[in-house]
Structures are given as structure tokens and as C-alpha cells.
């Protein structure tokens, strides 16, 4: 499988993270999204007329939606699926227009109604916090149960990167514990803006 990848993209990171957690090898092809706008080049448009990333190719299959890619990667991994996933995959997609847009605005200068994007991001964080708090009342830490699914992996990047777009994560304790649980998963990989857990490395 080949992932056409941009290192700073939250959506590409969903795919890299899912593959790492599954132990599935990916061949990465770096795409110069910024400043090169290479995702709009004729070669990339031939692969994905929408001109977006990520793009995953697996043989003749070409997938350009990150939720579809997560489903594809976990096709043979039912332990990463739940019947509640779809709701959260839609929630994750909507984050691109709030927290994701605020981040692109603050980091690389995308045009945006920044106050509106951040306000929508705060509303999304409150929704997520309320749900995760309910889960914790039932002794569950992840979005759909006691184990992570593609729902968690889809939501994690834009949530964890919210501070890049000027949205604080400080007031959301259940979100913080959930992020910690994801960062603690075997095989977890970080991306810039999300530090790995240094707690256990090389105790002095």
C-alpha cells in the first residue's frame, strides 16, 4: 500500500497512526502540500481529481477519504471496529472545518473566519468531553467502549492538535485522559505537535 502523505496533515496522520497500530507496512510518498501545492499538480489530480490528501493506493484500489482508508486498513481487523464508529467518523470529518481549519490558518496562513472556526472547535470539544465523561461513568475510556476503534483514531489528530490553531485543551479532563490512553497504545507514533510519552524511557 502506498500513502501519498503530507507530514503536517492531521488526516494523513490518521492513516499513518492506524497502520502503525496495526503493524501494517505503508510506503510513504511525501507530497509537498505546503509550500509546493503539489497535491494540485497534474500527476496528483490524475490520481485524485478532488486534489486532497491523503490518497491510499492498494493495487488498483485508490481511496481518497480518510474514513474509507481507515475502514480499508481494518477490513480484516474486527477488533478495531464498532457499530458506533460511523457517528464518530462523521464527527471527525467535521473537525476539518473547525479545529483543522483553525490550525491551517494559524500555522500556514489559510484564509478562514478564525473566530467562527475556533468557536465551532470549542463546541466540538464540549460534545466530545461530555461523551467521554459518560463513558468514564461506565468505566470505559474510548469513544465506543473499552478498546480503541477507528472512531478514536479518526478523532484523535484534529483534537490533539487543537492548540496549533489557538484552541486550548486545558479545560477538558476526559479528553485529556482519552488522548493519554491513545498515546499509550502499543505501536503509537507521534506527529509534530503531539509528543510521545517520555514517562518510562530511560529512568535515571
Amino acid at each position: 500500500m502506498i500513502l501519498y502523505d503530507y507530514v503536517l496533515s492531521a488526516s494523513c496522520y490518521k492513516v499513518r497512526l492506524m497502520a502503525a497500530l496495526l503493524g501494517t507496512p505503508l510506503t510513504l510518498r511525501a507530497v509537498n502540500f505546503h509550500p509546493g501545492r503539489e497535491h494540485k499538480s497534474p500527476e496528483m489530480l490524475a490520481l485524485n481529481p478532488k486534489g486532497t490528501l491523503p490518497i491510499l493506493t492498494d493495487g488498483d484500489t485508490v481511496l481518497t477519504d480518510s474514513a474509507d482508508i481507515l475502514r480499508h486498513l481494518t477490513a480484516d481487523h474486527p477488533e478495531w471496529r464498532s457499530t458506533d464508529d460511523d457517528r464518530w467518523l462523521a464527527f471527525a470529518s467535521a473537525l476539518n472545518a473547525s479545529l483543522g481549519l483553525a490550525r491551517l490558518h494559524d500555522v500556514i496562513g489559510y484564509d478562514a473566519d478564525i473566530d467562527k472556526a475556533r468557536a465551532a472547535g470549542v463546541a466540538a470539544l464540549r460534545t466530545l468531553e461530555a461523551h467521554l465523561t459518560e463513558q468514564r461513568f461506565d468505566g470505559l475510556i474510548f469513544l465506543t467502549g473499552s478498546k480503541p476503534t477507528i472512531a478514536d483514531i479518526a478523532c484523535f489528530p484534529n483534537i490533539a492538535l487543537a492548540p496549533d490553531g489557538g484552541v486550548s485543551l486545558d479545560p477538558y479532563p476526559s479528553v485529556r485522559l482519552w488522548m493519554r490512553a491513545i498515546r499509550s497504545l502499543p505501536g503509537f507514533i507521534e506527529m509534530p505537535g503531539i509528543h510521545r510519552l517520555h514517562e518510562l524511557a530511560h529512568p535515571v
Binding site: 507530514v7 503536517l8 511525501a30 507530497v31 509537498n32 509550500p35 500555522v107 492548540p163 509534530p192 505537535g193
Partner: peptide
């Protein structure tokens, strides 16, 4: 390395710094 790979590498490094600097 491709040009995109070299750009990616440096952006990765600097964005790791950004979360400190802010």
C-alpha cells in the same frame, strides 16, 4: 531524497519546535 522529502523533513522538525515555542 526527493525535494518533497527534504521539505517534509524540515517541516517536521520545525513543527516539533513550534509546540515548545508557543
Amino acid at each position: 531524497s526527493t525535494m518533497s522529502e527534504m521539505v517534509s523533513f524540515q517541516q517536521l522538525i520545525f513543527m516539533q519546535d513550534r509546540s515548545i515555542l508557543e
